[in-house]
């Protein structure tokens, strides 16, 4: 599958094209261009390293939204084993934008839930672009309660532009569905690990994101509002999204500094989509080591720590 290059990756693409030309030139000719090929390859890598070492907030948002980026079910496939999908909220329907079920990750049996995006029109029609309806959040809670009952930890992989803004979603009380999840996850008697793997779109992300460990992939973003939405309100135009992205401090490293997340999971150079297999391994290792730490902790201690962590979030002047 050809990976679409992002705008800021143009210098890399140009060098890669030159490299291809040199290679083609060599083919069928009796000249030794190996050193030149090697120099060019090194130059490509150096440029890529350089660009990826200095990504802006907005560039990371673009990587987080890349359609070739591994999605929830890709990770379930590669980082987990023996997935059994469980469907439905038992109330209204099954939300395909929030699949979930039972799976194994390393030595741990768990319940895994997450938002799923599509790569083409057909998939996105089914997955609703990864924007869940209330049914998705209620199904997630049903599965989390099952996890609690059977003493299985919960792993939530977050990747959503936001909960769905639609008439049906409002009529079935999407706000309440999210609010109940926040309240119930805070007191759920089993370890919870949440990882933002792509987009962490506001309340729609947090609705499965109250966890003992909240991690983010290096190029994921997590924000109270989309950069475009913020730009439209504060700058009066969506074109200012790059400035808004910067101002919102929505990147993994910034959020770790603010104490909003507990850790950052590195991605392969050029982003998870350049090497999904390696990205999956990094994700799996991070989840397994978090669960290794959390599973032995006594429940009351676990819940107190979870409460204290979120309790401590916020900055203000006492006055």
């Amino acid at each position: 599958m050809k990976i679409q290059a992002l705008e800021f990756e143009k210098p890399i693409v140009e060098l890669e094209q030159k490299l291809e030309e040199i290679k083609k030139h060599v083919q069928g000719q009796d000249i030794d261009l190996d050193p030149e090929v090697r120099t060019m390859q090194e130059k490509v890598e150096a440029t890529r390293r350089d660009i990826y070492a200095n990504l802006t907030a907005w560039q990371r948002v673009q990587i987080a939204r890349h359609t070739s980026r591994p999605f929830f079910l890709d990770y379930v496939d590669q980082a987990f084993t023996d997935f059994v999908e469980l469907k439905g909220d038992r109330l209204f329907g099954d939300d395909a934008s929030m699949p979930g079920g039972l799976a194994k990750v390393g030595p741990h049996r768990c319940v895994v839930i997450g938002q799923q995006k599509g790569r083409d029109v057909k998939e996105n029609l089914l997955r609703n672009f990864g924007s869940p309806h209330p049914e998705g959040y209620r199904k997630a809670l049903r599965l989390m309660r099952m996890a609690e009952k059977f003493r299985l930890p919960v792993v939530a992989l977050i990747d959503t532009p936001g909960a769905y803004p639609g008439v049906g979603a409002e009529e079935r009380h999407i706000a309440e569905a999210i609010a109940v999840n926040l309240r119930e996850m805070m007191v759920l008697e089993t370890p919870i690990v949440a990882v933002v793997i792509g987009e962490g779109g506001s309340g729609g992300a947090l609705g499965i994101g109250v966890a003992d460990r909240v991690l983010m992939l290096e190029n994921a973003y997590y924000s109270v509002i989309s950069p475009e939405g913020c730009a439209a309100i504060l700058w009066k135009h969506r074109k200012h999204a790059p400035e808004a992205a910067e101002a919102l401090k929505l990147n993994a490293s910034e959020l770790q500094k603010l104490g909003v997340i507990d850790g950052v999971i590195p991605e392969p150079l050029g982003g998870a989509h350049r090497d999904p297999e390696a990205a999956s391994l990094l994700l799996r290792d991070a989840i397994v080591s978090a669960l290794d730490e959390l599973v032995p902790v006594a429940t009351n201690k676990l819940l107190q720590k979870r409460y204290d962590k979120f309790r401590g979030m916020g900055r203000f002047i006492e006055g």
């Binding site: 109250v210 109270v224 979120f310």
Partner: peptide
């Protein structure tokens, strides 16, 4: 809604308040 100017710290107030309500309910 949440206050944009405080970014994710605002969003986390949703979890914080809901958590306090969970204990109040218990």
């Amino acid at each position: 809604g949440a206050r944009m100017y405080e970014g994710m710290l605002s969003l986390m107030q949703m979890a914080k308040t809901s958590g306090a309500l969970a204990r109040h309910a218990e």
